[in-house]
Structure formats: structure tokens, C-alpha cells
Amino acid sequence: MYTDILYPTDGSTGSNAAAEHVRLLASMFDATVHVLCVVDTRHVGIGMSGAFLDEGTAGMSGSATDTEGGTVGERDDADERQAELREHGESVVKEASAAFGDIETTTAVMAGNPHTSILEYADDHDIDLIVMGTHGRTGVDRYLLGSVTEKVIRMSDAPVMTVRAGVED
């Protein structure tokens, strides 16, 4: 039924919530897991959901303290920021892929609009199922930040399974 399962992740709690479901489904169907991280280059300095930054300090302005004590929004070199995002994306997919053990995985890092890139990847790789975590944002946060998962659900040709962060199996 499922031979190729797409697991978009940014390393956040929301996306990690889906990993066990992906592992179970891939084991049941002997499927290949496609681990994808999309770095959002529309607002250089944050990843798909802001997971590149400390989740407590990420903000709409993109001005947050990075791990070296500087302010992300103050950096002058956009190429350097994009390289850092890409490097972070590579570490996210490497870590996520390793967690699947002996399940066949393939990894990719894309740059761009997250929901568009996820849908593009799914179409290009004939994905049978997309399994995504949700952050559980509500109200103004959801309205202002948008929901990558919601957009993928509405626009995907493939079925989409969602797992809310903090939900026990």
C-alpha cells in the first residue's frame, strides 16, 4: 500500500512527534522513508518552523539570539546565514535518518517555501503518504505564522497523516 513515505522534519518537537508513526508504518509496509528538511529562505535565519533558533526566542521578526550570542537579524551576510541553515538542515535529516535504524531511508534538504517544497518533493518522488507533526498552535499564533501542515493537507495529492506534538501513542 505504501512504498514511499515522506517525513518532513525540522527537528522540532512538533515534527519529532510523527517519527514513531513513520517508523511503524515503514516497518509494516516495508516502505522507504524520505526524510526531508526544508529551510525557509523567505526569512533567512529561521528554519521550517523556527526550530533552528531556540524555540523560546524565535519570533516573527527573525531577530533572535543565535547560539554564539549574536543577533540573527543583525548579520550582514545572507549567504552565510543560508549556509548555516543548510548545514542545520543536513544535521536534522542525518539525525532523523539514523533514528530509523535498519529502515531504508533517503534524505534531502531543500530551500524555499516549506509547504511548496514539501508538495514538490512529494510529486517528484511519487510519495504514497506524507506523515507530519503539528505544533498545535492556535489563535493568533496560528493565524500569523500559518500552518505548513495545514497547507500541505489542503494541497497534497497524496494522503497526509498528522500527529500533534505531545500526544501519547
Rank of each mutant, 00 (worst) to 15 (best):
T71V: 15
T32Q: 01
D54T: 03
G133Y: 03
V163N: 07
V35D: 10
S156F: 02
G89E: 02
G62C: 13
F100P: 06
V152I: 02
V22D: 00
S27T: 13
M132Q: 12
I153N: 09
A26Q: 01
V140G: 10
G62Q: 11
A83F: 02
G133H: 08
D124N: 13
G47H: 07
T162M: 12
D102L: 13
I118W: 00
D77K: 07
D102T: 14
S49Q: 06
Q82G: 03
T162G: 05
T32S: 06
R164Q: 13
P8H: 04
E80N: 13
A51F: 11
A58F: 05
D77W: 05
G59F: 00
A111Y: 02
G14A: 07
Q82R: 12
V163R: 08
N16R: 15
L24T: 15
L6P: 03
T57K: 15
M132S: 07
S97Y: 00
T107L: 10
G11Q: 08
S61I: 12
A158T: 00
E150G: 14
E90P: 03
K94C: 01
A78H: 07
H135I: 01
T3R: 12
A51T: 08
D77C: 14
Q82S: 02
S27N: 06
T71A: 11
I46Y: 13
A26W: 04
A158R: 06
E120T: 15
V35K: 10
T134S: 07
N113C: 08
L119T: 05
V163K: 07
L25Y: 00
L85E: 10
R164Y: 06
P8V: 04
S15M: 14
M155E: 12
L53H: 09
R75N: 05
I118G: 03
I130M: 08
A19C: 10
T105D: 03
I118V: 15
T134C: 11
E87W: 01
T3Y: 09
V167R: 12
Y121M: 11
T105K: 07
G56R: 07
A78Y: 09
P159E: 02
M155Y: 06
A18W: 04
H43Q: 05
T162R: 06
E68D: 12
P114R: 05
D66T: 15
D128K: 05
A26H: 07
T149C: 08
S117G: 12
S12H: 11
E150H: 00
S117N: 12
V131D: 09
A111D: 06
A26D: 08
K151M: 10
S27R: 10
T9I: 00
I130F: 09
V22F: 04
G59H: 09
E168V: 04
D157K: 11
D40M: 04
S117Y: 00
A58Q: 06
Y143R: 04
A165V: 08
G45L: 01
L6M: 06
Y7F: 15
G69F: 12
G136A: 06
T32V: 02
D169F: 13
L25F: 11
I46F: 13
A158C: 00
D126F: 04
E95L: 06
G47R: 03
G133C: 11
L129D: 09
D10H: 15
K94Y: 02
D4W: 05
R137L: 02
V39P: 02
I103D: 11
D141L: 03
S156V: 10
H43K: 14
E55V: 07
V148W: 08
T3N: 14
S63N: 14
V92R: 08
D79G: 03
G112R: 02
D123K: 04
V152R: 06
